[in-house]
């Protein structure tokens, strides 16, 4: 891109972090409230797309040398493996459990759920697949 995009770049540097923080919040808010891995992943992907828009593909590849297809695979693997974890406890596939624990930093009675692990898988998959799609369309400049 040749156009003068100082404003876009400066704004992006700030906004990206706001979006990423919000996506993390959405990710952890999931399960009992609106949020979760899917929407968190989409928001993260939107932050990444913003980065790719304001800085060109080449420099982004240097900054973020991530293979998004592998990321998708790992996310899927985590999600499926969490579902299969229930085999160990003799519960049906995809069963989830949660409990309340006292953790030092997060205060008493923090809820920990295995669904978060599943959501982590979903998060990685969504980010990976969205970026793969967008880059596949965007990389072709000719």
């Amino acid at each position: 891109m040749n156009m003068n995009d100082v404003i876009l770049r400066t704004a992006t540097k700030v906004i990206t972090f706001i979006i990423l923080t919000f996506s993390l919040y959405m990710f952890f808010a999931g399960h009992n409230n609106p949020g979760g891995g899917f929407i968190g992943g989409l928001i993260t992907a939107s932050a990444l797309v913003l980065l790719y828009l304001s800085f060109d593909l080449e420099s982004m590849k240097k900054v973020l040398p991530v293979n998004y297809i592998a990321m998708t695979a790992i996310g899927l693997l985590i999600a499926v493996a969490t579902g299969m974890g229930s085999f160990l406890f003799g519960a049906p596939f995809l069963s989830h459990a949660f409990g309340y624990y006292d953790l030092p930093l997060f205060g008493e009675k923090t809820e920990l759920a295995t669904a978060v692990l599943f959501d982590l898988g979903v998060y990685l998959t969504v980010v990976g697949i969205t970026m793969t799609i967008i880059l596949a369309i965007g990389e072709d400049q000719t």
Binding site: A70, A73, L77, F93
Partner: peptide, 20 residues
């Protein structure tokens, strides 16, 4: 009976691993 889901899970897992 968790065996019922295995015919679906095995190819899914394999497919994911084969990406890598």
């Amino acid at each position: 009976n968790n065996v019922v889901v295995l015919p679906i899970l095995i190819p899914v897992l394999t497919g994911i691993v084969l990406i890598l």
